[in-house]
């Protein structure tokens, strides 16, 4: 049985009155991640919006331990924490590396690839708000084609985003999954499953960001749903190499059709001047990925 609003644990590990923007998708995700970990974890966090959410010295807005680390070092720092806990006999604590897409797809990818190749005993969670948001919405390797950022200001980004979960899958790690704060039960269940596995576990979260994507904060959950319903973001997990669509993506694969990507893009100011050709290109990109996902999906 999938977890629901009535069966999610009550305890919160994120305190009210934090520094994240109103309507931040990361906030929703962080709540349910920490619930799934039951608080028995150490977070390793590089420079990112999560640093800001975590709070300014000397007060913290979360009730789990956080080790802040240098921007490129997340996975390596976390594997050090894991190694330290191992030699000290404290392996009951889950080491969670949690970084933005810039910290994951770009500057941190070397450390992440190294840790994954060594199968370091960490759960790595990338929350993908599709840009360097806390430094003011610059383009990242995960920014989608057509999205305007402060470093792709006129035409929008001209390249497709990196497929980071696929990069991680190519490292043959025990668990790769995607999730979205708009589907908290699915997110919660995946983190819970990942928590009980050993080795490198990678999760990639779609994290709608009202300030960077330029939409009304009230629409965060709707944007996350539309990302999945248009197929721009797929919910799946890869366990020991077996690919499975989950939650809403699985339901859509079984029956129904994806919504046109335009419905998702047009709600966001960052795509306001995207050319029709760019939107068509995104649609084609989605179609190809969706086709491949359905082919790969194992019940």
């Amino acid at each position: 049985m999938a977890t629901t609003a009535l069966t999610l644990p009550e305890t919160e590990y994120m305190l009210p009155g934090n520094r994240a923007c109103a309507g931040c998708g990361l906030g929703i995700a962080f709540r349910h991640i920490t619930k799934a970990l039951d608080g028995k974890c150490i977070f390793v966090v590089p420079a990112s919006c999560l640093t800001v959410l975590g709070g300014m010295y000397p007060t913290s807005s979360v009730t789990v331990p956080i080790m802040n680390c240098a921007f490129p070092s997340t996975a390596a720092s976390a594997s050090g924490v894991a190694a330290g806990l191992k030699v000290l006999g404290r392996e009951d604590t889950t080491v969670v590396a949690m970084a933005g897409d810039g910290g994951t797809a770009d500057i941190g990818i070397q450390a992440l690839s190294g840790a994954a190749e060594r199968n370091a005993n960490i759960l790595y969670i990338c929350y993908d708000n599709e840009g360097y948001m806390n430094t003011g919405t610059q383009r990242s390797g995960s920014t989608p084609l057509g999205a305007k950022t402060t470093t792709s200001p006129a035409l929008g980004k001209c390249e497709f985003p990196k497929d980071v979960p696929a990069i991680l899958e190519a490292h043959h790690i025990p668990y790769v999954a995607t999730a979205s704060p708009s589907y908290p039960g699915d997110l919660y269940d995946k983190v819970k499953k990942a928590k009980d596995l050993r080795g490198t576990r990678y999760m990639h979260l779609n994290a709608p960001c009202p300030s960077g994507w330029q939409f009304a904060p009230k629409d965060t959950v709707e944007l996350g749903r539309l990302a999945v319903e248009t197929g721009v973001f797929l919910l799946y997990e890869i366990e020991d190499g077996v690919f499975r669509l989950t939650s809403r993506s699985r339901a859509l694969a079984k029956q129904g059709a994806l919504k046109p990507v335009r419905e998702f893009l047009e709600l966001q100011g960052r795509f306001s001047s995207a050319a029709d050709a760019a939107i068509d290109a995104v649609q084609e990109w989605v179609n190809q990925r969706w086709k491949r996902a359905i082919e790969r999906h194992a019940e």
Partner: peptide
């Protein structure tokens, strides 16, 4: 009796030590 971690760079070597030292290991 130690964990030997053959990292992929010196930046990561020191990062690993930071993590391990922060939880109380001699590195």
């Amino acid at each position: 009796d130690a964990e030997f971690i053959a990292v992929e760079s010196e930046h990561s070597a020191m990062s690993v030590l930071i993590g391990a030292s922060m939880v109380g290991a001699r590195v």
